[in-house]
Design a protein around this nucleic acid. Structure first.
Lengths: 211, 211
DNA sequence: CCATAAAGCTAAGGGCATTAGCCAGCAGTG
DNA sequence: CACTGCTGGCTAATGCCCTTAGCTTTATGG
């Protein structure tokens, strides 16, 4: 009895195993780990000829998508863990920091996070749902701000845009001075916190000039 | 007398001509136009064998960089035109809208805009400078807010991150509902305006809760 | 014990970038 | 006016890669 009881035949290697090896390669490749992901390398690391992978994976694009699903799951779990028990500005700060920390710690996986699933393809439903879960989580965190319903979308988008933009630029080495990135990020997060709060309470209009 | 009078030998084709053809291909390819840029296709559109391009271009990566320089120039020019004669919040709004408009109108070139030049490679100096010019322009626009010197970086980064993040997500079809994107973007821009103003005048602290 | 389906393999085709080395013209110079 | 040399084009070849087709082997379940 080599393994469990269902469909595990001989050499070992399965969709999950292939994805695991792909994740290793993505993780090892830094920010370009996803772009550098290659069936040839995964096959080599599995000790198998390249075409053999097609018994488990479908295509390189499909493998990338599987990586994306895992990465989105990671991010959802980390975000949920970081925000549980918090609400309002506190929760938003925790969410933003977790997001950035994840991106910096796993740049390749974070890149995978940004793959846009085809809205129609039925085989990408899992991918779409994984993405929707993260976005929903942002919405949930923002619920603590008491936003009017029709403004929630705007707030979610602003938060996603701000954090994603910062992290993207940071990973792409788009900023000079390596110093002070933490402080700049904090400043951005405070802008978002204040901005979302303002969206929730339009009476407190933005500070225009000094009084 | 086939052409003008300086260095145009026989068939016609030069670094600039090759870059021009590359730009056409990038423009025709939508958001993935840059990624889909290929020496083979450029050569075909020039009516030339692929290796011939190496007499003008160096490599595919170099061609991409030349495209990036052009795109950064476009963006600088558009931004300068949009912000001249404005200052403070007004200028920042104009800058942000111009940026987004450029990205939506020329997604392939906008993607080129995000290529990070090697900080050391001497042959990428032109690329670095083109990038620095755009960033400097953001700094100039923000000068109207009277930010303390040591906070300017934070503000520039927040603005770049917010706008770039939004546009990236929008291009990647990362948002659902095609409607209301304009309003969401406006909301983000107002957050940035208010946030930068707050950075300039820390006494007006963010609205925490409703009073 | 045997049939069958799954999981591997090799072979082959089609892209692509890149390097090496050849050839034909045009531009000057002696 | 002839010659020399540069320059921009070419073909050939290498080495990656993804992907498809079809064969072989193995393990499993009846």
């Amino acid at each position: 009895m080599p393994t469990s009881g269902v469909p595990v035949p001989r050499a070992g290697l399965s969709r999950d195993a292939v994805v695991r090896l792909a994740l290793e390669q993505v993780d090892a490749g830094g920010p370009t780990g996803l772009a550098d992901l290659t069936l040839a390398k995964v096959a080599a690391s599995a000790g198998v000829a390249t075409p053999s992978l097609y018994k488990h994976v479908g295509s390189l694009a499909a493998l990338r998508r599987h990586v994306a699903v895992v990465a989105l799951g990671d991010l959802t779990a980390a975000s949920a863990a970081a925000t549980v028990g918090r609400s309002g500005p506190d929760a938003l700060r925790a969410l933003a920091r977790t997001w950035r920390a994840y991106a910096l710690a796993h740049p390749g996986r974070y890149a995978a996070t940004q793959l846009a699933p085809d809205p129609d393809a039925p085989e990408e439903a899992e991918h779409r749902e994984a993405g929707a879960r993260v976005v929903a989580l942002v919405g949930a965190v923002l619920r603590g701000f008491g936003l009017p319903d029709d403004r929630t979308v705007d707030a979610v988008r602003a938060v996603r845009a701000g954090v994603h933009g910062f992290v993207t630029l940071e990973l792409a080495a788009g900023f000079r001075l390596p110093e002070d990135l933490d402080r700049s990020f904090d400043a951005l997060v405070e802008m978002l916190v204040a901005g979302v709060a303002a969206l929730a309470d339009p009476s407190s209009s933005p500070a225009q000039e000094q009084p």
